[in-house]
Amino acid sequence: MTVNFASTPEVQNLLAKLSGQDQSGGDARMKAIVRRIVGDLFATIDEFNVSDDEFWAALNYASAGAQEFGLWAAGLGVERYLDMRADAADAAAGITGGTPRTIEGPLYVAGAPETTGFARMDDGSEDDKAEILILHGQVRDVNGTPLAGAKVEIWQANTLGNYSYFDKSQSDYNLRRTVLTDAEGRYAVRSIVPVGYACPPGGSTEGILDAIGRHGNRPAHIHFFVSADDHRHLTTQINIDGDPYLHDDFAYATRDELIPPVNHVENSNLGTKYGVEGPFAEIEFDFDLNPAKAASDEEASSRARVLTA
């Protein structure tokens, strides 16, 4: 079989038909995208002489692993690629400043308890094994003006690398909170220092990574959605400095600007302010938001998320 079979008139005619390009109805952009995707698949089958058994094995694997598609997007670099394109578009448009974006991942859950100024994120169940963390900072516009009433949504893993809701042993919304900034644009949470984790053992993502000789580990990190009226919604995360996978994240989410120092404090007025006596870890991290140019800029992407509220 010739390696260029996908380019033959017969196959090109098939592509026109299967994508609806020989019909007047439907969306022209969707037709073009479908034709390109399926055409690229046909060309890949040609180039690597993919057998019927190999194709059906791959399709069966994808079908069985569909519940991890959000993790595939992270592990195969698709989320990182979307961020790279967005960064390039900003640069081309002359948009500068602002806290860097990075991937969301598939573990956000809507409806976390909302408070103003300060929240305790953990339920206390790991007090005997976790290091206390005080995370605080300010939300501003790119000119340095504090944004009062900005929404800071925060979610993270526990000391086992697991997230509430997905880990049914945890209490509802453990390590998930929404903090509205105070009059000075400040937010603060008491939490625990998270640990890194790997993609689910025995899952489809691990299977793909094993097959191509890659690991599935993530450094310890904390996720954020940050939003304010008339400003661009920010999806980002910070990494915990010192993690062995800090610059070897299987999801490619590490950015140097998103690695704040971790200060280990024996005792301080900051701890007293937030009900902590004795040692704790402190991270101070500020967010700078760009102005929105359209209403859609103020919203998160339309990916599927868990909605429990």
Rank of each mutant, 00 (worst) to 15 (best):
S204I: 02
D172W: 13
Q156D: 08
L59F: 04
K129H: 10
G97R: 08
L133I: 13
G65V: 01
V109R: 04
R140Q: 15
G161T: 06
V306R: 09
L180R: 09
F69N: 10
T2A: 11
E282H: 08
L234T: 00
S169F: 04
R255M: 13
A295H: 02
E298W: 06
H215F: 06
T272P: 02
E10W: 13
T308E: 10
D122G: 09
G94Y: 10
M84R: 08
E298M: 10
L289W: 05
V139P: 03
T96A: 13
I238E: 07
P200N: 07
N174Y: 08
A304V: 04
V179K: 07
K31H: 06
G242E: 02
P279A: 11
H136Q: 14
F48H: 11
G25R: 13
G77M: 10
D167K: 08
T159M: 15
P260M: 05
S164W: 09
V193F: 03
I103N: 13
G161W: 07
L246S: 02
A93T: 04
N269R: 15
I154K: 01
I132L: 10
L82P: 00
E206D: 11
V139F: 06
G242Q: 01
T145A: 14
T145G: 00
R101W: 12
A32I: 10
L180C: 01
L107F: 11
E277A: 14
I212V: 15
A228F: 04
Y274L: 08
P261W: 14
G161A: 05
H221S: 05
S171Q: 15
T2M: 06
V109K: 06
A198W: 02
Q138G: 05
R140A: 14
T44K: 12
A58I: 03
A64V: 03
F118I: 00
H247R: 03
R36D: 15
A295I: 06
L175G: 10
R255T: 11
